[in-house]
Amino acid sequence: MDSFTYLAPRSLGEALTALGNGKQSLLLAGGTDIIVQLREGRRHCDQLIDLKHIPELMAYRITDDGVLEIGASAPLARLYEDPEIRRRFPALVDCASIIGGIAIQSRATLGGNLCNASPAADSSPALMALGARVVIASSNGTREIPVEELFAGPGRNTLQPGEILLRVRIPAPAPNSGAFYHRFIPRNEMDIAVASSGVALALDDSGVITAARVALGAVAATPILVPAAASALVGKPANAESFAAAGEAAAAAASPIEDMRGGIAQRRHLAKVLTVRALEGALNRIRESR
């Protein structure tokens, strides 16, 4: 493990200044990935900048127009314990409550889970399905991108030098809509997704799908959105037949690798199965909320 200095800036300005001081920096949020990666020599730095003392990164709120804004360093447990978040954003709870065990969730953050850019990260497909965007700060101001544009490859994100992920913005759910995240792991907890699917559906009064988003994890170099699966759903009734078609589209979009966690055919097959199950879950949520 490298030797490094530790900085705990109290404001975003301080953090950005530290980030620009010419040293090789890494950002610390919950630390459940980065500390282990430093220990195992998989990442290196001269200075570690702790983002947990910047109030705006630790905060979350639901705005008046129903947008959920989550500071990048807010621990997952605080999010899923919040009754309003549980009620309005259950798909976020789906993913936040299964990343590691409870002791991990006390520390781990959405910002960290996203920036770590694992193709199998649980929060990514869920947030992509929810249409989340991320706000990125630098000394030049802020920019906002869809969450799916954050991923460059396994372990690589698209943040530029000097940038900090500030917060995640999840739009207010449309009326008559529902979202769901579902993954497959060999054990029942404490495991990395072999494949995963996050979906969101909106229906009209007659039960026809008016909007849909389908995202997959662990079946490509990054989490992917599957527009073909969404197209297979929009304009169709929310039933087994349309879900099966979306599942097939998801399987077709998957380009997985073979590794110790799963095989190519297995992952492709799971992309279909999980997408169908996630769609059923989303539909149930719509029905329950009526």
Binding site: Y6, G31, T32, I35, L48, P75, A103, S106, R107
Partner: peptide
């Protein structure tokens, strides 16, 4: 840590200030 269960191996000691 502040009343929440954490794995002490995944916390830096300096963070407990």
């Amino acid at each position: 840590l502040d009343g929440r269960v954490v794995n002490a191996c995944c916390v830096l000691a300096v963070e407990t200030q």
